[in-house]
């Protein structure tokens, strides 16, 4: 085994994938990479609904604090299929996220390195379809967390519950703006959870928000089905 600095010196192309240096769970996740089965009926799809808590909302500066996910078989939420991990943080002080999430530094001392937490989550997800509220943000956080591992990539297809809500409530062609409502607040998780009467007390933790999002997604899937969205392909179509 060559020391890291020699590897870097020897070059071999800084963009080449180096799976042997990836954490084991990440290798596992990458090995499952496959084409998205677009014909698959939604009731047969495994979804992993997740939420990540970060030090803030600025992708370039902020880091992962924790991540939690729950599996779904079609529209059924499974508590026998859950994931939770915390990330060790050394530089949290002063961030406003600590206020939002009610986390204190002590809680963050135990945990995994950021890349390890993200890798384990991805291994848990496997070939499931990832679901999150404002998914783009969480997907980019995941990608950023494993960025150090060259060649590794978050390849999972993803569904954004905020977009899906808009789509199944109003249809693809209409928008709330036309009716003068503010689409941003109308499709925030808090608003949707209240609108759908979802009662989850542990909000604003990764686990609480993941469960709330799962229960929201459950309802949206039913609505989607009535709009003729039956396969994974239908669901992922934009």
């Amino acid at each position: 085994m060559l020391p890291d600095f020699l590897k870097r010196l020897m070059g071999g192309g800084s963009l080449a994938a180096q799976p042997e240096s990836w954490p084991e769970p990440l290798r596992d996740y990458m090995s499952k990479r496959s084409r998205v089965p677009r014909d698959k009926a939604l009731s047969d799809v495994r979804f992993v609904v997740f939420d990540s808590e970060t030090t803030g909302l600025d992708l370039t500066k902020n880091r992962l604090l924790s991540i939690a996910g729950v599996g779904m078989n079609g529209s059924e939420v499974r508590l026998d299929d859950t994931f939770g991990a915390m990330v060790t943080q050394t530089d949290v002080g002063g961030s406003d996220a600590a206020v939002i999430h009610g986390l204190i530094s002590n809680d963050l001392a135990d945990g995994l390195p950021e890349d390890e937490a993200a890798s384990r989550f991805l291994a848990f997800a496997g070939d499931a379809v990832l679901v999150a509220h404002h998914a783009a943000f969480d997907m980019r956080m995941l990608q950023k967390a494993i960025a150090a591992h060259r060649g590794a990539k978050v390849w999972s297809p993803s569904v954004d519950t905020a977009q899906l809500a808009q789509r199944v409530e109003d249809g693809p062609m209409t928008s709330n703006q036309a009716r003068g409502a503010d689409p941003r607040s109308a499709y925030q998780l808090d608003t949707l959870v209240e609108r759908y009467g979802i009662d989850i007390p542990e909000r604003h933790t990764a686990a609480g928000d993941a469960l709330a999002t799962a229960l929201l997604f459950q309802r949206l899937l039913k609505k989607a089905e009535r709009r003729g969205i039956r396969t994974l392909g239908d669901l992922l179509a934009r």
Partner: peptide, 13 residues
């Protein structure tokens, strides 16, 4: 946050 709080939420319910 581990998934335990998710379990706890459901257990309490």
């Amino acid at each position: 946050m581990s998934s335990d709080s998710m379990i706890l939420t459901v257990a309490n319910r």
